[in-house]
Design a protein around this nucleic acid. Structure first.
Lengths: 369, 369
DNA sequence: GACGGTTACCCAAACGTTTGCGCCAAACGT
DNA sequence: ACGTTTGGCGCAAACGTTTGGGTAACCGTC
């Protein structure tokens, strides 16, 4: 079974069948309209296009890349694709790439610097035109090296130094979370920040802390703890906070996954999320709305970030300026922090209605396995 | 800033500097050992390799692909990468690909046939050596067409027809879930199956139903409902089941995301998961263990499936047989179905310890955003 | 009717590899 | 001393494009 795979049709074949030269066919088919006008007479152009269509001509990308020194390929590095945040960003990247005639390689680096180096080399060996880093670390000079080598790239998700980047305005997001809790009258709050090498967590925590300081309620050191960006990390972070003296009335965890871990820790301490402790996460991961007590969180435009990241790269490749874009986050208030919503939730005989009426049009959790 | 990007070093440069011919250098550097022996004398080979190393020679993949008609590229199609199940499978694919010197393009098709076609064409236009489909549908003849065109491919996640595939033994998984509930004495159970075009859900449901039938407890039609593989789908499915007469004592939802939706529906009806209704999901998604009432589920080896899928493709590309592999699932019992564990959970003053002691070494939820 | 300007093409040289074939010397066999 | 092998390498033709530079024929113009 399986038809003998016919050899793909080439420009040469088309040219031969039409008694033309291959270069003429090439120009007709691929030259930009402005310079393509003088490529061939209108009738021949039509004949060429017709035959190409009929034969199902497909330009050979390898020959093209070899000749033009441009691969139309971009490499994407992320910490983990099974992290829904990064996966969503990548979806945006890929979508925009397709629209721009580019293809993408994506690969995990698990945030380990050696893997980051190794994968970068692999990707570069494929002669990509540019790269997108979703795993930028501020504690290694790696990206500076890459830049020094003349490799065009942009960052998404995290920013480092002055390299071109498209990120969420994490600092503002942190302030929004703080603002929200201040409005609700919280005066003693804690924050579980992320890894120190990731701008995301750092900026979110800083924005949050700054806003509280401005309100005349500086957050003491023992109320701030650093943790990994995952459930166990969030749990440990929350535990540490709870162990340090009298408990605060609210907690800001800079990542939804961490917030889930924190929820576990709070339960272990017999504390009810939304009642005994207000909780705010970050990212508005699909599961935030589905939790038994829906989670207040700061939505970051992940998909959009990916799209913009790729588009910025396209501009950079075209010689454009290495801009930096900050995307606006959005506070999504749910029962985990809002007394009103919490009460409404509890008022139902059967608590647990998961909808929140605040995030329309997003369908959470989809699976196809 | 940004060094002028030096032109990459080629075989020609090495040959020139060594007074050799480019073909000799090529053979020394890339010929397989068996035929490479006669390529050059030992001393020249050493000189060549030394200079190549020093200059940092990198083989130009486009030139190579053009010449050899082999791209070392594989295209991967999935419904959605932001579905952690598919993302994890892809991680396996990508990992194995890197080990085999291959690179992968991955893209979403959202399970819509037109997108599937379009993306396949895009990927094929990139002259991939083969493809991996994670989104196979049994209701379109699409894959038969692809096979007829002579495109080498394998399926992962879902199987369709007799095409080579690496999937979880979903039927067995369904039986395991049934077995578990039978042991616990459940006699009236319901199942929320998936989309009819996906072998995964269909086989899981069939395995489950068959086991119950064998036990002399055939599941009546109104206890079986089809739904999408997501939380809203699971919710609707559960609602339908609950609306159809007296409620069953247990429910099998063929996907963890659907199970989450079902939990919501159960809450709305004032039913306690694990007490009033036993619930079993499928996949052992990281969040299953983190739910307030941890979810009993059937673990499918997602990462492994991806790895094996790519390895099978490699064999197929080498002319091997189009095998089909069934990976063994594993039942993971947690409080949502097990009265003992549920009681233990409730016995704590603060219920909600999320660990389950049954899934060691898996760190759930990791994020890096 | 010589001349500049289009129009509509063709030519050929790349881009960097791979690979079948051939050649020359040295080594070998007798 | 003379064929025959074989080790060690060079030659050149691909693979399918793109692109700067032709060059005829044709047009209109004075």
């Amino acid at each position: 079974m399986g038809a003998k795979k016919a050899r793909p049709v080439t420009l040469q074949m088309i040219a031969d069948q039409l008694g033309l030269h291959v270069s003429t066919v090439s120009r007709v088919l691929h030259a930009k309209p402005d310079e393509g006008l003088r490529a061939a007479s209108s009738p021949t152009a039509v004949r060429v296009r017709a035959l190409a269509g009929e034969l199902g001509y497909q330009r050979n990308p390898h020959a093209m890349s070899l000749r033009t020194q441009r691969s139309n390929l971009v490499g994407v590095l992320v910490p983990r694709l099974s992290d829904v945040v990064l996966a969503t960003i990548y979806e945006g990247v890929e979508e925009a790439a397709a629209e721009n005639g580019l293809s993408t390689f994506v690969t995990n680096t698990r945030d380990v610097p050696e893997a980051q180096r190794a994968r970068t080399e692999m990707v570069l060996a494929r002669r990509v035109d540019g790269m997108i880093f979703g795993d930028g670390r501020s504690d290694t000079g790696f990206l500076d090296e890459v830049a020094a080598r003349g490799v065009p790239f942009v960052l998404v998700n995290r920013q480092v130094g002055e390299h071109p980047a498209v990120v969420c305005d994490d600092y503002l997001g942190g302030r929004m979370a703080a603002e929200h809790l201040l409005r609700l009258g919280h005066e003693d709050v804690a924050v579980v920040a992320g890894e120190p090498y990731a701008s995301t967590g750092v900026n979110r925590a800083n924005g949050f802390a700054d806003r509280f300081r401005e309100a005349g309620l500086p957050i003491p050191g023992h109320r701030i703890t650093h943790a990994r960006f995952d459930a166990p990390g969030g749990r440990e972070g929350a535990e540490k906070v709870l162990a340090a003296g009298p408990r605060p009335s609210a907690m800001f965890v800079v990542n939804d996954f961490g917030a889930i871990g924190a929820i576990g820790a709070l339960r272990d301490h017999g504390l009810r999320v939304g009642a005994d402790m207000a909780l705010v996460g970050f990212n508005d991961t699909p599961l935030a709305a589905e939790l038994p007590v829906p989670l207040t969180t700061v939505r970051s435009p992940m998909h959009e970030m990916g799209r913009r990241g790729l588009e910025l790269l396209v501009r950079v490749l075209a010689g454009g300026p290495p801009d930096k874009e900050l995307l606006r986050p959005e506070l999504v208030v749910r029962a985990s922090s809002d007394p009103g919503r919490y009460a409404a939730l509890m008022r139902k005989t059967a608590p647990g209605r998961t909808g929140d009426g605040l995030s329309p049009g997003q369908d959470p959790y989809t699976s196809s396995s």
